[in-house]
Write a protein that binds this DNA or RNA. Structure first.
Lengths: 188, 188
DNA sequence: CTCTTTTCTTAAACTACATTAATTTTTTTG
DNA sequence: CAAAAAAATTAATGTAGTTTAAGAAAAGAG
């Protein structure tokens, strides 16, 4: 049984047959480090579940500066859900930070699963909720805490991730410059 | 037909009978200005649709400073959805900023509607999505823009609201001090 | 309508974080 | 493994936003 099947089983009750039917709608894909899974303003036709590796989701602001919005790693979903569901062009860039293996699902297959497998409806409902809740928490943190506090929290919350990705990427996620992050780390 | 019925009709196709059944599960409630609809760490048993007035959702950070997370006004939903759905204690405070009239729905009635009225399932799916998307946008803004840019955006996005609530509340939403907001306004 | 409380404004001193630029360390690539 | 490119460090200087404090204006209460 693959990691996706396990992930689903942890969230909803579902028979093994249904699970097989469900997993059949996914296709394995690979991207190499630094490759883009999605470019901003392209059409979004898939979302992804990570089997191996990690990605960053980012944008450029009006001054051309890159800002990391999220990191995603093993057993997480990623993609531009908003564009996938609304059929609007992608609002984000998504880039592999390590060699990456994912399970991809097309919108057509997503819709089929929603119709045919009620457990998938329940599962995606939980996914959306959790995404919503983690966004709420992120907003809170950006409002309430200093860069240093946000960095400590990041370390606590994503302990492995901080070993796997560069500080430049972490700084961009925290909303500070790499130079300032370097200074925070020194004075620890 | 009340504002909630209209709001639902704008989002999903639904018969008038179903709509009546649906609206019957809501109870009208009133709160006066400054009254709290929800206190942090209390149990959450209802969520609300606003007929009249506006509210702020806020927390205290570790230093005791208040931070506004959202404002909600006519035709919007509010409540601590996370706690409502997960049955955990409230993570937020919610306070009326004006005299307030809402339609409240209990968790029991929410669950009944989800079972009995498929259109309600579709409607809440859209609600959750939109909440998710607006959170994404807020995270982006806090990362990418200066206080002044965020203030301009706030004015453009909530033109009426800025007339209805105090600058102290707006500053708390923007993540700056009232003094600094005052300075931004002067130099306009 | 007056008294009290809260909000708003202004300004000076201060701090968290940005910018620039030079140097070192690490990673990537042929 | 050597050369090139990217990332990380350090330090000096600059700036967006905070803090404190005091007075003016507006809102709320009796």
């Amino acid at each position: 049984m693959n990691a996706l099947a396990k992930h689903i089983k942890n969230i909803v009750v579902i028979s093994d047959e249904q699970l097989v039917k469900l997993c059949d709608r996914f296709v394995e894909k690979r991207f190499s480090k630094k490759e883009h899974v999605l470019h901003i303003s392209n059409t979004v036709n898939e979302v992804y579940f990570i089997l191996n590796g990690c990605v960053r989701t980012y944008i450029h602001d009006l001054n051309g500066v890159e800002h990391n919005i999220t990191f995603s790693m093993e057993d997480w979903w990623f993609g531009d859900l908003q564009s996938y569901l609304k059929r609007t062009p992608a609002a984000f860039n998504i880039q592999a930070l390590e060699d990456l293996t994912v399970l991809a699902i097309s919108r057509e297959n997503w819709d089929v699963l929603l119709k045919e497998i009620p457990e998938f409806v329940a599962y995606t409902r939980v996914l959306f909720r959790n995404t919503m809740f983690s966004h709420e928490n992120r907003i809170l943190q950006n409002l309430s805490y200093t860069a240093e506090e946000r960095y400590r929290h990041f370390l606590g919350h994503y302990p492995n991730l901080s070993q796997r990705i560069s500080q430049k990427q972490i700084a961009s996620y925290l909303g500070i410059t790499p130079e300032f992050l370097s200074m925070l780390r020194r004075k620890k």
